[in-house]
Simulated assay, not measured.
Amino acid sequence: MENIAGHKSALTWVTRITVLILVVLWLIPTVGLFVSSFRDRDDISASPWWQAPFPAEQTFGTRVAGEAVQEGGAFVLTGSIYEGSDAQVGAKVVAFGISRSDPTGITAGESVDLKGGGTLTVNGDGTFEMRTPEAPSAKGQRVYFAAAVPPEFTTGNYERVLYSNGMAQAFINTFTVTIPSTVIPILIAAFAAYALAWMEFPGRGFLIAGIVGLLVVPLQLALVPLLRLHNDIGIGQSFVGIWLAHTGFGLPLAIYLLRNYMVGLPKDIIEGAKVDGATDFQIFTRIVLPLSFPALASFAIFQFLWTWNDLLVAKVFLPSDSESWVMTRKIADDLLGSRGGDWGILATAAFVSIAVPIAVFFLMQRYLVRGLLAGSVK
């Protein structure tokens, strides 16, 4: 029954379910970053992102002080516990305490005995009443309380990232690095791929094997030697240096993808053009290159995403002054600081930095699969 028209095999459904599971697994952290980008640091520390729509319990500290009123044989001080604290008005007090070791030991609405005599009562709406046998000191009584803070979303993180000093220059620098570092490898690799696919010359097989071997070489091994070479030839840490670095690191994959695609083009077209007297350059520019656009677009997506999101190569091959920073370095070294503990800024910066790569990917994604599958079947 599986091979009858109109019936799909069980393997098809397994494949679809697997793809759906993978998509969901990728979307979960993305949604988490998106939600966190609209929350401040305290909210992120208080509750996970999936609890963002619900009130989160946070602990605050303050001192209750003021002018007490004498009633009978006691002094009574009333007011709001929110005054002098970071808690927003409207948060519901859940519990409170008067010692740092047990800041939430008393349920809201109950009373606690003070060390110097008297009692303190904190209600759920934040109002308090303190009764003491003597007038309270001007310093006030230290009080800790836990409050259920309602959710609050803000665009402050985006304003801080987008309007930070130097972000516009970093955005321009990122384009300055990414566009040439994408175009140059494609131009060089296209010529090399055509030669390896359709031109006969000694050592072609060894060159192809060498290119495949270079795919597994980690770029970290070449950073220091390549930087020394740049210093020796006089380009040092500059935009030209990082263009050449990205070109060298991207060429093996570019040549491999393009060669696999070009070798699968119809042989009759190439041979017919040669019979008609076309040169290799004419065949390449008028026949092979237009037909290889899916593979070119496929590599362009990979190279653009890699260079746009790169931090390591940018820190090695660009000058250290802030005028030459790309967005990844601006975010890592300036906005996040040395510890990088501000998760709200980190999540916001992630979405700001991926806006352009996402646009490029959706514009060219239809060519991605065609380019990756080039040469896989005959």
Rank of each mutant, 00 (worst) to 15 (best):
I4R: 03
I17F: 11
L25V: 15
L25C: 13
L27I: 12
P29R: 01
L33M: 13
R41K: 14
I44N: 01
S45R: 14
A46N: 10
F54R: 13
G61T: 11
T62H: 00
A65G: 00
G66P: 07
V76E: 05
I81H: 03
G84L: 07
D86I: 13
D86H: 01
V94I: 10
P103Q: 03
G105S: 15
S111W: 01
L120W: 09
E134T: 10
G140W: 06
Q141V: 15
R142M: 08
V143W: 09
V143Y: 09
Y144T: 08
Y158I: 01
R160D: 09
T174M: 00
T178L: 05
V183T: 09
I184G: 02
I184T: 05
A190T: 14
A190R: 02
Y194E: 05
L196W: 05
E200A: 14
F201E: 03
F201I: 11
P202R: 15
I208V: 12
V216H: 04
P225K: 01
L229G: 04
V240G: 10
G248W: 07
F249I: 15
N260H: 06
K267T: 07
I287Q: 15
A295N: 06
S298Y: 08
F302I: 15
N309L: 11
L312T: 11
P319L: 01
P319Q: 06
S320Y: 01
E323T: 14
L336M: 13
L336H: 12
S338F: 06
R339N: 10
A347Y: 02
T348P: 02
V356E: 04
F361C: 04
M364P: 01
R366L: 03
Y367E: 02
G371V: 06
L372N: 07
